[in-house]
Design a protein around this nucleic acid. Structure first.
Lengths: 139, 139
DNA sequence: ATTGCTGCAAACTCTTTGCAAGTTC
DNA sequence: GAACTTGCAAAGAGTTTGCAGCAAT
């Protein structure tokens, strides 16, 4: 229950009205990794809860605007979402749709320092995104 | 004319048949920055040359498979393409659809070295992609 | 001659939008 | 009760596919 209140808080703090759909969408974003809008719709069905696909998109878009979550663009052309992360990067498989998080604060600091000391002409950096494309060697 | 022959060569070397459409598409990729499929179609029209949108997509997909070009996923959901680059990064505007190249070999080396020395568990890196999201301060 | 490519149109997928009814604050 | 949100359905944008005819090797 405590968890649910955290979601409500986040939504209130973002200046949005709290609805069941929004709380559940936030919750799903916490429990499924990088879901697409359709993944979220399916998860509502799995839990016997109702939502329309339009609402899912509307809500996700509202969350993105409020910076509660962010979009990931993928090779497959489907947009995926994730809770706004403590900085991390992404590993993309060349072979399939797999996406994994990769945490490396050291690397992030390295890039940040480099950019800060050097600067980019005519550009102010707001966010750093880094992806590694390659092959997963586990399983 | 020499330029055109270079395009033909690239296509032959990729094991694809040389057609006027393909040569022109390669040429457009060289002269327009990060075009979408539709940008390419428009450019054919500008030059009074004919192509169908299906062919544009087929060709781009063939080129991507042969690694002649690569896809860029953008916030807007439209896929853009570019000639397979000497490594560089991308600057994305938070406000509009603008995308610029950013060259920084030093930074690339930094990231590469870091990854090589440290390694990523269960993952082999094939390609590094880095984007900076922020604001253009020129103009 | 064989294989691959083009053009066209139809189909598909993902996402957005308009609006009436319902909810939240 | 004012403002916002939902659900639904329809529309829109971008991309993919099937196939007959044509072109490249």
């Amino acid at each position: 229950m405590n968890e649910l209140n955290t979601y409500r808080e986040k939504i209130v703090n973002a200046g949005l009205k709290v609805t069941n759909q929004r709380v559940l969408i936030l919750s799903i974003l916490e429990h499924i990794s990088h879901p697409s809008a359709d993944d979220i719709l399916q998860e509502f069905r799995n839990r016997n809860r109702n939502v329309s696909i339009g609402t899912v998109y509307n809500t996700l878009e509202a969350f993105v605007e409020k910076r509660l979550i962010r979009k990931l663009e993928t090779e497959g052309g489907v947009v995926r979402y994730e809770l706004t992360p403590d900085s991390h990067f992404h590993l993309y498989s060349r072979e399939d749709e797999r996406v994994e998080d990769y945490f490396d604060d050291e690397l992030l600091a390295l890039i940040r320092d480099h950019i800060e000391s050097k600067g980019i002409k005519d550009f102010t950096v707001d966010e750093i995104r880094l992806q590694f494309i390659g092959s997963f060697t586990d399983k």
